[in-house]
Computed example of a mutant assay.
Amino acid sequence: MAKKYQIEIPDSAFKKTDFSMNEELSLSVNHKQINIRPINVSDQLPKINIFWYVIPSIILAAIFLAFFSARKINTVPITGDDYSIANGALILGVCSGILSFLITFIITKILGKGPSKDFHWRSLPTITIACGLIITFSLSAIFWLFGQMFKDARFDIYTATAFIFVIIAAINYIMINLALTLSSGVITNLLTIMIIGGMLFSMLTNSKRDWWRYNFSFLGTAKNSTSLQFNITLIFTGLLMIALVDYLFVNIQRRYHGYKIQVLRWLLIMLAICIASIGLFPNNPEFHVLHDRISMWLVYIMLILIVVIRWVLPEVTKQFLVISYTIGAVMSIEYIVFKLTNYLSLTAFELFEFGLAFSWLLLLLQNIENLAQFGQNLFVVKLKPVKDDTN
């Protein structure tokens, strides 16, 4: 007969759940971890009332229809016009999505329900603007693609209104769900989507197809038609990273203390400030020297982080150290090859360095996120074998 075991958990841990006494729960084992949760999977998902996102969508779609009807516009193009589905979806979708996120976050924060209660109010503006920018970039990229696929396509105002309704409803649902499931992992994903999506969007839509012949920083200069999007991406990526670091280290300091944690925190904040400053001071003639120096400061801070990570990151694994030193060595070799030979162009060098640095930064944030999560929700439990009374 198989052995049975009993798990004893402290009362402080039980109070953090919504379980009731004698409730039947499900247990799963995943990656050598035991997870206990409600039997119904639906109980773990955020409850989003259909009216929360459908009613605002109906109202905004009605405004869209009334606007075009008042101007006696019978057919609406997908893109390429001031009065298009793309512009309508962009304006109404961004405004509606931001309001949906804000209202949901504020209500759950005030009521003390959901993950938003663990975030500071000072993080709300940065996260909200970042979400708005991601919606803007996503819709712009999607409609740019549709414009290439369906050139000169037009729809009657009722079909166009139906498209607007579906788009706004989808955006509202996503933003409400985002506010109800916000976490450090979600913010890391937002940061990744924002910086990569913003840069790809700027590469695809800029006016000079041969921008890569100059350098990576060219995307942020006045010579590029999409420089504003590129620079805003960098600025709010830095601000979003500061919000993420702030959230993580508030939680991590509940378990880990000392000056080493503060050194790691301020190095990451300085790194985020450099990222934002590169967007704030683009590589235009008036900012060229400052832009180059900030870029070098960013590289120096990255190298300092890689060197000191052994001492400032609690419970650092040997695997992460090997990855860190390998990436640091590759970045150094690339720098030497770039300086001493003509093998790498400036754009190729910058893209390689950015890819390696950003990959390592995501790994570091993931390690810190795990420490913060365990530091906040770590409890001592007892596992006891249960005696079989039938024997």
Rank of each mutant, 00 (worst) to 15 (best):
W144K: 12
W144C: 08
L145Q: 14
L145I: 15
F146Y: 13
F146Q: 07
G147V: 02
G147A: 04
Q148K: 15
Q148H: 15
M149H: 11
M149T: 13
M149R: 10
F150V: 08
F150M: 10
F150T: 10
K151E: 13
D152L: 14
D152V: 11
D152K: 15
D156V: 05
D156R: 03
D156P: 04
D156F: 06
D156M: 07
I157M: 14
I157N: 11
I157D: 09
I157T: 15
I157K: 11
Y158E: 09
Y158Q: 11
Y158A: 11
T159P: 11
T159S: 14
A160T: 05
A160E: 05
A160C: 05
A160S: 06
A160L: 04
A160M: 07
T161D: 07
T161E: 08
T161Y: 06
A162I: 14
A162M: 15
A162N: 04
A162C: 12
F163I: 13
I164V: 14
F165E: 05
F165D: 04
F165S: 05
F165C: 06
I167P: 04
A169L: 06
A169Y: 05
A170R: 08
I171P: 00
I171W: 01
N172H: 02
N172M: 03
Y173P: 04
M175R: 03
I176R: 02
I176M: 00
I176Q: 00
N177T: 07
N177I: 02
N177Q: 07
L178Y: 06
A179D: 01
A179N: 01
A179R: 02
L180G: 03
L180E: 11
L180S: 04
T181L: 00
T181G: 01
L182H: 02
S183A: 00
S183C: 01
S184I: 10
S184D: 10
G185T: 12
G185P: 09
G185L: 10
I187P: 02
T188A: 12
T188L: 15
T188F: 10
T188N: 15
T188M: 15
N189E: 13
L190W: 02
L190V: 04
L191I: 08
L191D: 00
T192S: 12
T192L: 13
M194C: 07
M194T: 12
M194G: 12
M194Q: 14
I195D: 09
G197H: 02
G198Y: 12
G198N: 09
G198F: 14
M199C: 09
M199A: 11
L200C: 09
L200F: 15
F201W: 14
F201V: 09
F201Q: 12
S202M: 08
S202V: 05
S202F: 06
S202N: 07
M203W: 06
L204M: 13
L204R: 08
T205V: 09
T205R: 14
N206A: 02
N206W: 00
S207E: 04
S207Y: 04
S207N: 15
S207G: 04
K208T: 10
K208I: 09
K208Q: 08
K208D: 15
R209M: 09
D210T: 09
D210F: 08
W211N: 03
W212Q: 12
W212C: 05
Y214C: 03
Y214H: 14
Y214A: 07
Y214S: 08
N215Q: 12
N215A: 10
S217Y: 10
S217P: 01
S217A: 14
S217F: 08
F218Q: 03
F218P: 01
F218S: 00
L219P: 02
L219W: 00
L219T: 02
